[in-house]
Design a protein around this nucleic acid. Structure first.
Lengths: 132, 132, 132, 132
DNA sequence: GTGGTCTAGACCACG
DNA sequence: GTGGTCTAGACCACA
């Protein structure tokens, strides 16, 4: 389910955070559903439990998941839309950087839009697959 | 010209790299044009010269700029399109992560496409301004 | 009557302790009045009976309630004023921490006093409501 | 400067967080001033560097301090007022709990107001002492 | 030099 | 059983 690349420059805990978010978006994890325990996921991914714990803590601060004492961690049932404007501005900044990078690969506006569409298609396809 | 945020999570040298690339794309830096020397830019941006040096080295590896001993560093005159497929795949991966993040801000496909368009518009506008 | 938030950072048993104390203060629970049994309250609040048991034990240690074997648990009829000075010092320490926190929300002395007044008003109002 | 009680029930990193906030409020730490490095403070307080690091990270997320790569951590120069309403509600909840606790020590409204005043006086006094 | 990440292993409170 | 905290020690990127 979760694939970790320990030699990536992206920190392991961020990889976990990303993949949990992606799983929720795809529907592989539904609202209210229980996540694997810290220890379980640590064993599954061959990662230190503290690292998984850090990822879960990060997700909890973003209100993506909630932890219930002694029971485990669950996908938040009332996933509200975030409104942290500075975070959104940072995201747009990152997007701009990527677009500039793509330019040096010969990818201009139309191609970029196509790539975006592909990504959404990909996410949607896996979501349909999960729900069927 | 270059605005550096030393408390950003993005490394300073990467900020410099990004802004040089962006300046070229906008036309603020033309092909063949001379860049400020490491020391000059370091002073302008109040950044450690080693950091600027690292940024220039990075740009040189990507063949965006070339340094001519004793003359200085210049924007590469024959900017060819990069074909490093693994780098492109990494970029798409980052793009996917950003799209997933945007989802939690309520930004879905159509809005994302709009944001992309806005970014291109913004880059184009500044480019026109630079050439006039 | 008792509202438990299992995903709060405050332990469930402490939430129960707090709410029992608050109920007594408001008059919803009178001196000598019988409390629900551990099992009853556990079912009402959908909480593990061991957790309710721990809350009751804690309240008993503080002499807020007394348990009479075979009869049940009751609000202590002779609620005397506590004189544990170390406990009081700890409370003041917590109060100081909260005041420091409030400062970062722009809440200074006068506003803090107002908030305190509001809380007493709130408690008093609910007490009047309970006695009518 | 910082006094840590390792046997307190309050986590060490929270003690550090509290004391940094208090120091800023008192003026012992001014805006823009450099904090001790993680390693320095760890040695001063006889605490593991990771624990100090966690405290600093927490403070950074709250925008109380900023870290500048390779240079250290500094008190944020533009300390804006926080507006996280849910956090403020939680603070008021804690305040209510403390007021209920105080009741069992015979501390009612007027005494509580006095205690608050004393705390502000105490903070102010130390602040004046620091600035003189 | 700085902070950031990760691991291994331990202890604890809670339920 | 769950997650939370802490330590010790290591490695790394950045400036």
């Amino acid at each position: 389910m979760f694939k970790i690349n320990p030699s990536s420059s992206q920190p392991i805990y961020e990889q976990v955070v990303s993949q949990v978010k992606e799983s929720i978006l795809k529907g592989a994890l539904r609202e209210g559903e229980k996540l694997p325990s810290v220890r379980e996921l640590a064993e599954m991914t061959r990662v230190n439990p503290n690292t998984i714990g850090k990822a879960y803590k990060t997700l909890e601060k973003e209100r993506i998941i909630v932890t219930i004492r002694g029971r485990g961690t669950f996908v938040n049932e009332s996933l509200d839309i975030k409104t942290d404007s500075t975070a959104l501005i940072q995201l747009k900044k990152k997007l701009k950087d990527i677009i500039v990078e793509l330019h040096y690969f010969g990818v201009e506006k139309d191609d970029a839009q196509k790539i975006i569409s592909e990504i959404y298609l990909e996410l949607r396809k896996e979501a349909d697959h999960a729900s069927s």
